[in-house]
């Protein structure tokens, strides 16, 4: 971990301990949430998108300012069918705008492509309001998991036990099926579906939600947090996305650092208000998750709802 990051964490931890949590709403003014607004927005997310649920996490890590059964939000087993890194290569190759094909063959114009060599400025933090629909691609990468490298040597150990194991099951009712065998032309051409557990915690220091990612490979084995960075937009990998201790779960997880969240949310809210839409605080997380989709474009978590974003002027 970088020294500055550590210093900052120590500072942030101290401030969080000695200061009270926000009680006055500053949603429209600063794009931030009070604790009760976070809980309200979370309740709304859970009821509209039932793949999300509240959880209590590790008892020892419980935050006293949040209800014990509503410490953080989580949605498990979210598919990620392709690597964000490879999606961006296509964008970059295509320049400013590219047409994406989806299964229904209606084209989507993606405006996220960047002309080569242009530095992204602050405006790029603000996602466009159109949803970005990523179609199928042939781009495939081979990924190692925890089992790559060092772990391989432990596995042959097991082979010698294999024949001794009296686990011989011949059963016509068992579907002989694995992801690997299912579409196996050769080792390099397997589209490896990763899945993610995506969680949202409340960051007391920045007074915004914060997203955490736990990745799994196609056989649902834990991914090294480093590999998770392949599923993060490359503008954000290692800059805004860092690997840190989860506030409610054990272990290191990748997280989108919340230092700019308030400012970006404020911008989104301003855009909505300029379009005559009065943003409601319990819809904060839908806007927030839409914004997060620009950081993790290929992780297909659910944040859809019927609500008017105002006439989008494209």
């Amino acid at each position: 971990m970088v020294l500055t990051q550590k210093l900052h964490e120590a500072f942030k931890g101290t401030v969080e301990r000695i200061t009270g949590h926000r009680t006055v709403s500053a949603f429209k003014e600063k794009g931030v949430l009070s604790v009760t607004e976070f809980v309200d927005a979370g309740d709304n997310l859970v009821s509209k998108c039932p793949t999300w649920s509240w959880e209590s996490g590790e008892p020892s890590k419980r935050k006293p300012y949040l209800p014990p059964d509503k410490q953080f939000l989580i949605t498990r087993n979210v598919p990620c069918l392709r690597r964000a890194a490879s999606v961006e290569e296509e964008y970059d190759a295509a320049g400013e705008e590219i047409l994406l094909e989806n299964e229904d063959n209606d084209g989507w114009l993606a405006t996220h492509g960047k002309p080569k060599g242009t530095k992204c400025d602050l405006e790029d933090d603000l996602p466009s309001m159109e949803s970005l629909d990523v179609g199928k691609s042939q781009t495939i990468q081979s990924i190692s998991s925890y089992f790559g490298g060092g772990m391989e040597e432990d596995i042959p150990d097991m082979a010698e036990y294999e024949e001794q194991d009296n686990v011989i099951e011949t059963d016509p009712g068992t579907l002989q099926y694995t992801y690997l065998v299912a579409h196996e032309p050769d080792e390099e051409n397997i589209l490896r579906t990763r899945t993610y557990d995506v969680s949202i915690t409340y960051d007391k220091y920045y007074q915004t939600p914060r997203v955490w990612l736990t990745g799994y490979d196609e056989s649902r084995m834990l991914l090294e947090p480093e590999l998770v960075l392949e599923d993060v937009s490359q503008d954000h990998a290692r800059k805004t996305v860092t690997i840190e201790d989860h506030p409610h779960l054990p272990g290191k997880h990748a997280s989108v650092h919340p230092c700019r969240h308030g400012a970006v949310m404020k911008k989104i809210i301003d855009v909505l208000m300029s379009r005559g839409v009065e943003p409601e605080v319990d819809k904060y997380l839908f806007l927030f998750l839409k914004f997060m989709a620009s950081v993790i474009p290929t992780i297909e978590y659910d944040y859809t709802m019927d609500f008017d974003l105002g006439s989008s002027s494209t």
Binding site: F147, I155, E162, D165
Partner: peptide
């Protein structure tokens, strides 16, 4: 099955 084989899994 562990990747199609009758083997235990291991995680470090």
């Amino acid at each position: 099955l562990n990747r199609g084989k009758r083997l235990p899994r291991c995680i470090t």
